[in-house]
Amino acid sequence: MPRRGAKYFFWNNQGANGAIPTGDSVKKIVVPGEKISDTPFMAETTYVEGNKTYASVAGMMDEENKFVPTKSVYSPRQGDAVVGIVVYIRGNGYKVDLNLPFEGFLSGKDTRVPFSMGEIMFGKVKDVDEVGNVDLVDVRKLAPGKIIEFPAAKVPRLIGKRNSMLNTIMQGTGTEVYVGNNGYVWLSGGDIGLALKAIDMVSRKSHVSGLTNEVADFVAKHKSE
């Protein structure tokens, strides 16, 4: 489906560190408004017009010609795993910062563990109402640790297939890591500095295939130093 103005490019297999793996496919960059399918399908980053589907954010087509958004605004959905920080305590529950325009809410009824201001939790989105208010459930308390903001669109990459990327980073650095779909990432223990560098690498090279091996090599190399 090439169109005027669109570009094809190849990921260079002689990257900055000579480390970008080969065997990667041609990827086509897509900009908002570009047609990505002749059949209609709805997703958060697409829209349908005249029975055809168009991208609403920039991204790329992967090997299976599936649209992968590169940067998108996180919209919470029921069942999402999130990392949050308690910022207000209310009589009936807790207001939780989720890196969203509005705080989420954890009802006192939905947790047996009491929280204090500033405590960090890992939980699930129980419900999102029509104006975007988030209710939380299934929370567990995390110890004080480092919280970083990670691009929400790249969270699936940071987790990897069957947690492969996350396990690589955790095992390589000894750091415990919790990743929220909301882009908050919690870290504690082990070599946090190295874990942060590895996470930064995932963020910067999220488009590169074979990245899990590259991250594993990186972590192994710097650990031995």
């Binding site: 900009v31 908002p32 408004g33 954010v57 605004v73």
Partner: peptide, 12 residues
């Protein structure tokens, strides 16, 4: 800038 921010738009 909007595309760079990942804000959904119908078109450029």
């Amino acid at each position: 800038a909007l595309a760079d921010a990942g804000i959904p738009m119908k078109d450029m």
